[in-house]
């Protein structure tokens, strides 16, 4: 496995820490005028999702992590695995529950997702920034009440719950921002 020296540190570099692949978010040189230099980095652990600070002595080397992002289409789930396909090579990959995590609620068939592979195996799924999903359950809004401020909860076909305006009804398809889980409008038909 290749190593990176601290001089190669920059945002986006993938390194191994405590046996887990990590993404460097920020790298800062801490160097007294007289004395040892250090690299203080902010790191996201790619499996646990934890963000932490870590300091290295400058000049040390750190094991690189074989991590790559690929764009794959979501196909279906068999309940245990979520299956994705490369639309050019038709190669398929199955991600387990740990890799899909919370984002299971944003998986829409045929949507293109970012699948993060570590040593060839999926460790994280990033859905598109916007997905369109059908509302399967929401309270009927009160007639004439269009000025409601808070809206109402609506359950989507994937199980996700988002707040929608009062005039939105069960059966409608809505567009949601997956980064913050907010309703952005009715789907364009």
């Amino acid at each position: 496995m290749a190593n990176y020296s601290t001089n190669e540190f920059k945002a986006g570099l993938k390194i191994m820490l405590d046996g887990e692949p990590c993404n460097i978010l920020e790298n800062e040189l801490v160097k007294p005028g007289k004395g040892q230099a250090f690299n203080r980095v902010r790191i996201r652990k790619l499996i646990s999702g934890k963000v932490l600070e870590k300091t290295f002595k400058s000049g040390e080397s750190v094991e690189s992590a074989d991590v790559m992002d690929t764009e794959l289409d979501y196909l279906y789930t068999d309940g245990e695995f979520w299956h994705f396909m490369n639309s050019e090579s038709f190669e398929q990959i199955a991600a387990d529950k740990a890799a899909v995590g919370e984002n299971v609620k944003w998986l829409v068939e045929n949507d293109s997702c970012t699948v993060t592979l570590w040593n060839g195996a999926p460790i994280a799924i990033t859905p598109p920034n916007f997905v369109e999903l059908e509302i399967v359950e929401t309270d009927p809004g009160l007639k004439g009440d269009t000025a409601g401020t808070g809206g109402k909860p609506a359950t989507l076909s994937t199980g996700a719950v988002v707040r929608v305006p009062l005039f939105i009804q069960t059966g409608e398809v809505v567009k949601v921002d997956t980064r913050n889980g907010e309703y952005t409008g009715r789907a364009q038909k």
């Binding site: 801490v30 160097k31 007294p32 004395g35 040892q36 250090f38 203080r40 600070e53 300091t55 290295f56 002595k57």
Partner: peptide, 23 residues
């Protein structure tokens, strides 16, 4: 202070002092 990895390997007191001072 959270620098266990460096502390375990470092035997130069000045390096540790500089680490603690700067961080």
């Amino acid at each position: 202070q959270g620098f266990r990895d460096i502390a375990q390997q470092e035997n130069n007191p000045d390096t540790l002092l500089q680490l603690l001072f700067s961080h």
